[in-house]
């Protein structure tokens, strides 16, 4: 479905929430709801989005939503999908919105079960690359070298030491009907993916990189700029898995040097030229793997 901003609704289904200025996660949810519409039932675990939309007595979602336990997004969604089916609700979308910690770490088992059963839901993981809501702790989606309070810098410590999990591969390995990555800096691509997912039955998963000025340490106005640089430097890719095939939505003709992306962010400011080289090597290995999977 081609997206024309002109024709999208001016109504907002998430509004007034207390997320930080320039929050990428908020962009992801706002745009997803623009496509999915009012008949969406949202399930959220503990994360920035649930914490900033439910500040009693304020509720910033204008659609029905439930906040569940941190590990339980997948299982709560499965229950919601079953309830919708039992009640014969044909026109509703069951949407999970969870952070990277809630998805790649603590919620992974429930999500895996959901994918295995092919429950009829859309699961949107917004990735701000750490546990932000609790004050910037590393997750298994935190990139190599990034400072967080639990991947410190100083002495011999140089930030995160492990290579992040590839959630896209993990979910695609469940052979779900639809799985994609996206970026808040490529809203048209993202909304097309949401629109596509809306018209598919079964477990659909979208993993969107959502830059976070507070946790990454950059000025709020640069959220879109950094998301774009991540894609242009090959540190994040836009891909889809469907019918057993992997497709790349955008292939930068030549990667921008990673330092353009890394340099202005507080979490990477301790990195040296050698570290940039390490990150470029990791990137090239990741792309070599990806390219093997793409049908030529």
């Amino acid at each position: 479905m081609a997206i024309d901003y002109k024709n999208l609704s001016d109504r907002e289904l998430i509004y007034g929430q207390k997320s930080c200025p320039g929050c990428g996660a908020t962009i992801a949810v706002r745009l997803a709801l623009k496509i999915l519409g009012e008949r969406t039932f949202v399930c959220l675990p503990a994360c920035c989005v649930s914490a900033t939309t439910n500040v009693y007595p304020e509720t910033s979602f204008f659609v029905n939503n439930v906040v569940t336990a941190f590990p339980a997004t997948g299982s709560t969604l499965a229950g919601m999908a079953a309830a919708a089916e039992m009640q014969g609700l044909e026109d509703v979308v069951i949407l999970g919105v969870a952070g990277d910690g809630g998805t790649a770490d603590i919620g992974l088992q429930a999500l895996s079960g959901l994918c295995e059963r092919n429950d009829n839901v859309i699961y949107l993981c917004y990735d701000n690359e750490a546990y932000m809501n609790t004050g910037i702790q590393r997750s298994s989606s935190t990139p190599w070298g990034a400072w967080t309070t639990t991947s410190p810098v100083g002495g011999t410590a140089k930030g995160e030491t492990k290579i992040r999990k590839n959630l896209f591969d993990i979910i695609a390995a469940h052979r779900v009907p639809y799985c994609a990555t996206a970026s808040t800096s490529y809203p048209r691509d993202f909304m097309e993916k949401i629109a596509k997912a809306k018209n598919i039955r079964g477990a659909r998963f979208i993993h969107i990189q959502a830059p976070c000025p507070t946790g990454w340490g950059y000025p709020a106005e640069k959220t879109i700029e950094y998301g774009r640089l991540a894609v242009e430097s090959g540190l994040w890719y836009l891909a889809e898995y469907e019918n057993g095939e992997v497709k790349l939505n955008l292939h930068p003709p030549k990667f921008k040097p990673v330092e353009f992306y890394l340099k202005g962010q507080h979490r990477f400011r301790h990195l040296t030229e050698e570290d940039y080289k390490v990150i470029e090597d990791q990137r090239d290995q990741e792309w070599a793997l990806l390219e093997k999977k793409i049908k030529s």
Partner: peptide, 23 residues
């Protein structure tokens, strides 16, 4: 603000989209 327990909002079954402060 609720004057008693009975008036308290309980989850989104009671209300969605209730903005009580500007930003």
């Amino acid at each position: 603000l609720p004057a008693s327990e009975g008036e308290m909002i309980f989850g989104t079954g009671d209300v969605t989209g209730n903005l009580t402060a500007v930003n």
